[in-house]
């Protein structure tokens, strides 16, 4: 395990923000740390970076106790917390050079990360004049600078446009698959995490409500077959008579719990044979979103 916490608890005054959290982040994973705003994600991340002092419980990173091996551990972590920390009076490149100075890294690596986040052309522009997305990308570049083994990113796609989001996602997937890094990424958007995470932890009100691989989560969510047809009510009745469970019927769609690909094919054939026009038939993951809401709201 790259990150392993045990019974991590943190209070701000009388308010418990993190409740006996036990995170397990395996090596080489993209761990999606999901939760609504105010769930305790940033507090957890600050604890992982020793920015907040651990009050109860323990944190082990790379198999070592964080408190007693702080500098050694921090040397292998790149992080981006909340909005990126950037000196607005310096240019993008100067921001990176300053960090490179502190980490004793050469200018070649600075140019390299500028290229990775597509800021080479804006390198000499003052960071104060950067757009929100450019600042976010500079923040990611700062986190990548030391080529760390573990990346801790707090809502890294905030403020990015769709292209930027896809780029960050592809970059993270590449880092993990090709360079054997581990990524711990927080978000309040399930769709975001779903597309890249290998493991998921769901937190709300400081409590970990779910932890496991993305497949475990999908298995819990019971995907559905979404069928678009000209007469949904009749089609639903017909499917029911043929021993299919119809979960939901709307004016345009009907939903059947998904079991196998073969089942989808059978349904399609059945409806076509009876003369229903099937406009579309897809396996649908919307239920995961519902599951996420259920998990976080019922807690």
């Amino acid at each position: 395990m790259v990150i392993n916490t045990d019974g991590l608890t943190f209070d701000f005054g009388s308010q418990t923000v993190v409740k006996s959290l036990s995170l397990q982040v395996p090596e080489g994973s993209i761990y999606g740390f999901l939760g609504p705003n105010g769930a305790g994600k940033t507090t957890t991340i600050k604890l992982l970076l020793n920015l907040l002092q651990t009050q109860q419980g323990s944190i082990q990173i790379f198999g070592k106790e964080l408190k007693s091996n702080r500098l050694e551990i921090l040397a292998q972590i790149g992080s981006l917390i909340e909005q990126p920390a950037i000196y607005l009076h310096l240019s993008g490149k100067e921001n990176l050079l300053n960090r490179a100075l502190l980490l004793q890294i050469g200018e070649a690596r600075v140019n390299e990360v500028l290229k990775i986040v597509h800021l080479t052309d804006a390198a000499h522009k003052k960071a104060g004049q950067y757009s929100l997305g450019m600042k976010q990308r500079l923040g990611i570049a700062l986190a990548l600078l030391s080529d760390p083994k573990l990346l801790i990113l707090d809502e890294p796609t905030n403020g990015l446009d769709p292209n930027g989001i896809i780029e960050v996602r592809e970059l993270l997937i590449k880092l993990v698959s090709e360079h054997k890094k581990t990524v711990f990424i927080s978000s309040h958007l399930l769709a975001e995490i779903e597309r890249m995470a290998t493991h998921v932890g769901i937190i709300n009100h400081g409590e970990l409500l779910f932890q496991g691989s993305i497949h475990d989560l999908e298995a819990m969510s019971k995907p559905a077959v979404q069928i678009e047809t000209d007469n949904t009510v009749d089609a639903a009745n017909y499917l029911s008579r043929n021993n299919y469970t119809v979960a939901e019927v709307t004016d345009t769609h009907l939903f059947v719990p998904y079991t196998t690909k073969q089942q989808m094919g059978n349904i399609n054939k059945l409806l076509n044979d009876m003369g229903y026009n099937v406009y579309s038939i897809t396996k649908q993951h919307k239920d995961l979103e519902k599951l996420f809401l259920d998990i976080t709201q019922n807690a």
Binding site: K46, L49, I77, E82, A85, Y87, L88, L102, L103
Partner: peptide, 18 residues
């Protein structure tokens, strides 16, 4: 204030420097 303004205390104190 250079750190207050840029919100960089968190990065300063998460550097591998004591």
């Amino acid at each position: 204030s250079i750190e207050h303004k840029a919100d960089t205390w968190k990065t300063l104190f998460s550097l591998p420097i004591s």
